[in-house]
C-alpha cells in the first residue's frame, strides 16, 4: 500500500492530461453550442474551423520566430493568437456572408443548414491542406515543462514523478480566462444579453428591436476566437494535423450534447465529462493499482479497459446513454 505514490501516478497519467484535454473540448463545445443557440444548427465545419484558425496561428508563429521574437519560457504561439483569430474571423464572416446568410433569409429547416455546413467543411478542409499540407506540424517552443518528473522526484523523494507540461498549464489558464471573459460578456454586456435573448426567443428578441444580423456577426466573431484558441491549445498540447481536428468533431459534439445543446455551462461540464471518461477508460491502471493493492493481488495485465484507439467509442457510448435517458442533456439544453 502506497497511497501517496498512487495519487501522484494518478495525477500524472490521468488527472493532469484529462484536465488539459477537457479544457480544450470545453472550448470547442462552447463554439458548437453558441452556433446551435443563435444560428440553430449543428455546425459540422467546426473541427475544420479550429484547424483553419490554428493554421493561422502557426503561420504567424513561424513569422514571429523568423523575426526572432519569443516569449521566453512561454510558446510564441500565444503572441500569434490574435493574428490567428483575425484570420479565422475573416474566414467565417466571409462564409456567413456568402453562404449562410442566404439560407437564414429563407428560414430553411435546420437540417439543410447542417448539410450546407458539410460543404463548408469540405472547403475549409481543402483550404487548410492547400496552404499547410496534410502532415504534422509542430509549433510549440519555450520551455517544455513547468515541473518535470525528475525535478518532482528530487523535490519530494517519491518513487513516482509528476510532470506538468507548459502546454497543459497554459491550456488550463487560457481556458479559465477565455471562459471568464465569455460569461462576463454574455451576462453583463448589452450585446451579450441581446444574444441570450435572441437564443431564448427569436421572435420576442426581434420585437424588442434587437438587430439579428448584429447578433449573428458577434456570434461568429466569438466562435472564431473560441475555435482558434481551442485548436491552438490542442495543437500545442498534442500536435497539429488537419485530420485530427476533423476527428475532434465527435467528442466535441458529444460534450455539447451531454451538457445540453445551447447551454454554455453544459458545454464546459460536458467537455470535462467526456475528457475524464476517455482518459480513465483508455488508461492502463497497472501502475496505480500496483501501489494501492497488496503484492499478492497485484494485477498481471495492463488493466486497460479499452485500447486507446477506441477513445471514440467512449464519447459515443456516453452520447448514446444521454440520448436514451435524458435527450436534453444534463443542463436542459433546448434540443429534444
Amino acid at each position: 500500500m502506497d497511497f501517496l505514490n498512487a495519487l501522484v501516478a494518478l495525477s500524472n497519467f490521468v488527472i493532469v492530461p484529462a484536465v488539459a484535454y477537457g479544457s480544450q473540448l470545453a472550448l470547442g463545445a462552447l463554439g458548437v453550442t453558441l452556433i446551435y443557440g443563435i444560428l440553430r444548427f449543428s455546425n459540422f465545419a467546426h473541427g475544420d474551423t479550429m484547424a483553419f484558425g490554428t493554421m493561422g496561428v502557426i503561420l504567424a508563429t513561424w513569422w514571429l520566430q523568423g523575426l526572432g521574437v519569443s516569449l521566453g519560457p512561454l510558446p510564441t504561439a500565444l503572441l500569434a493568437l490574435p493574428a490567428g483569430i483575425a484570420i479565422c474571423a475573416a474566414l467565417v464572416l466571409a462564409t456567413d456572408r456568402v453562404v449562410y446568410r442566404f439560407y437564414r433569409a429563407q428560414r430553411v429547416k435546420p437540417v439543410i443548414l447542417v448539410i450546407v455546413s458539410m460543404g463548408v467543411m469540405f472547403v475549409y478542409n481543402g483550404l487548410t491542406r492547400f496552404v499547410i499540407g496534410p502532415g504534422d506540424q509542430s509549433f510549440g517552443d519555450g520551455s517544455r515543462f513547468v515541473i518535470s518528473a525528475l525535478d518532482f522526484r528530487a523535490m519530494t523523494g517519491l518513487q513516482e514523478g509528476l510532470a506538468i507540461r507548459t502546454s497543459q498549464a497554459i491550456t488550463l489558464v487560457t481556458a479559465i480566462v477565455v471562459v471568464a471573459i465569455l460569461f462576463w460578456f454574455l451576462n453583463r454586456t448589452r450585446t451579450g444579453k441581446s444574444m441570450r435573448a435572441y437564443s431564448d426567443n427569436e421572435d420576442l428578441a426581434l420585437l424588442s428591436g434587437i438587430n439579428p444580423e448584429r447578433v449573428v456577426l458577434v456570434t461568429w466573431l466569438i466562435v472564431a476566437a473560441l475555435a482558434t484558441v481551442a485548436g491552438t491549445l490542442y495543437g500545442l498540447d498534442k500536435s497539429f494535423k488537419p485530420f485530427t481536428y476533423f476527428q475532434l468533431l465527435l467528442p466535441i459534439f458529444a460534450s455539447a450534447i451531454v451538457g445540453g445543446l445551447g447551454s454554455p455551462v453544459g458545454a464546459i461540464a460536458g467537455g470535462f465529462i467526456i475528457a475524464f471518461s476517455e482518459v480513465t477508460i483508455t488508461y492502463a491502471w497497472k501502475k496505480v493499482l500496483g501501489h494501492l493493492l497488496p503484492e499478492s493481488l497485484e494485477p498481471d495485465g495492463l488493466v486497460q479497459l479499452l485500447a486507446v484507439d477506441y477513445k471514440f467509442a467512449v464519447s459515443f457510448v456516453i452520447l448514446v446513454v444521454v440520448l436514451l435517458i435524458r435527450p436534453t442533456g444534463l443542463f436542459r439544453g433546448k434540443a429534444v
Partner: peptide, 22 residues
C-alpha cells in the same frame, strides 16, 4: 437515435462509423 432531432442521428452515425473503422 431515431425519433430524436435529425442532428442527433447525424452525430450518432458519425460515431458508429469511427467505431467500425477502429
Amino acid at each position: 437515435a431515431l425519433g430524436l432531432r435529425s442532428d442527433y442521428l447525424a452525430i450518432a452515425t458519425l460515431g458508429i462509423a469511427e467505431i467500425v473503422i477502429a
